[in-house]
């Protein structure tokens, strides 16, 4: 890892993120914030599925928990609680991640898929029931973040908060992936027995994978609630879990840049398409065929995702490769 080159990449990333809201219309700032939340969730899922090899079709459950925890806190105590609610949502969601770690100890991929799928469905059902009790059928109204009594411009503030959190958690993910924990993740994914022979504890490593993954996704849920201004259980359903899964496969399994690419692409695709197609009826058909077709085609022509494809192609162009991989 070349440090100078890596620093350049971070600086480029930060400056683009800093300039964007001032050149784009407000609506796109909002859409980018939402995409940022998806990037976080995709990073979390990729750490779990791409690196540690533990499939999850229930990550919508973590998004829902994160958004409810943060939403309940700020709606009850005010927007100035946002700064506590955000990390707390991550921690609490992280701990619920350990619920899934228990079946993961015993189950193979397909069996874990159904267990996580059940977890996602259960979370939605419980939260819906909770909404009945609290009489918040339309969801919880969530205030924007505030400092003391001063409330801040929601869209712009949430954009910069999301961008900051994404960068910070991306950096943490990079550290984790390049250290002993990341190596342990890949080891248990590829050869459980050899991993144990090296002294890697399967329960401990899987617990960390679920904890970290749920933490990231919980933060993403909390951000989502504050960007949109509402925490609602039905928003996060099986479709959400599957879309997250599509993001990481499309971008590239076990790749941090891949998670970002996949998440940005799939979050912004419908918005971009709306610019091109006016009629609602045609829109649905075109969107479905385009989205589905892309998934099918990417896996045929880029079996290791968009990022994997870029890296492979860049072998023909040494300078570009150095920039992409930093190696």
């Amino acid at each position: 890892m070349n440090l100078a080159r890596e620093r350049t990449r971070w600086l480029i990333g930060i400056s683009i993120l800093g300039v964007l809201p001032f050149v784009l219309p407000g609506y796109w700032t909002y859409q980018l914030s939402l995409a940022g939340a998806s990037v976080l969730a995709a990073l979390g899922l990729n750490l779990l599925t791409g690196y540690a090899g533990q499939i999850s079709l229930g990550h919508a459950g973590f998004l829902a928990i994160g958004s409810y925890v943060a939403g309940l806190l700020t709606s009850s105590f005010g927007g100035s609680w946002f700064w506590i609610a955000l990390p707390l949502a991550g921690v609490i969601t992280g701990l619920t991640g350990l619920v899934l770690f228990i079946p993961a100890l015993r189950l193979g991929t397909i069996y874990l898929a159904i267990a996580t799928l059940g977890f996602g469905a259960a979370v939605t059902q419980v939260l819906l029931k909770l909404s009945e009790v609290t009489h918040t059928y339309e969801g919880i109204k969530v205030p924007g973040p505030a400092i003391g009594e001063i409330s801040l411009n929601r869209d712009l503030t949430m954009y910069f908060i999301t961008a900051g959190v994404v960068l910070a958690l991306l950096w943490i993910a990079r550290n984790v992936v390049h250290a002993k924990l990341g190596r342990a993740f890949i080891a248990i994914r590829d050869k459980e027995i050899a991993a144990e022979a090296m002294g890697i504890s399967l329960p401990q490593t899987k617990a960390y994978a679920f904890l970290i993954s749920a933490f990231y996704t919980g933060i993403a849920g909390a951000l989502h609630a504050h960007i949109v201004g509402i925490a609602q259980a039905e928003v996060f359903n099986l479709g959400t879990s599957i879309q997250l899964f599509s993001m990481i496969v499309l971008g590239g399994l076990a790749s941090l840049p891949g998670s970002i690419l996949g998440a940005l692409f799939l979050s912004l695709l419908p918005e971009l398409l709306k610019l091109l197609v006016a009629s609602q009826q045609y829109y649905n058909v075109i969107y479905g065929v385009l989205y589905g077709g892309l998934l099918v085609l990417v896996i045929i022509f880029m079996p290791y995702g968009i990022w994997g494809y870029l890296v492979r192609t860049s072998f023909k162009f040494p300078k570009a490769r150095k920039f992409l991989t930093g190696a």
């Binding site: 499939i55 991929t109 599509s246 058909v285 479905g288 998934l295 099918v296 896996i299």
Partner: peptide
């Protein structure tokens, strides 16, 4: 959809079937 994707990791083929589902759903909706 599936035979041309034989080189992809098995876990990715799940996404292929998902893509197929989306296409069928969109066409049926139309």
């Amino acid at each position: 959809a599936l035979r041309p994707a034989q080189n992809a990791p098995v876990i990715s083929l799940l996404i292929t079937t998902l893509g197929v589902a989306l296409i069928i759903n969109a066409v049926a909706g139309g």
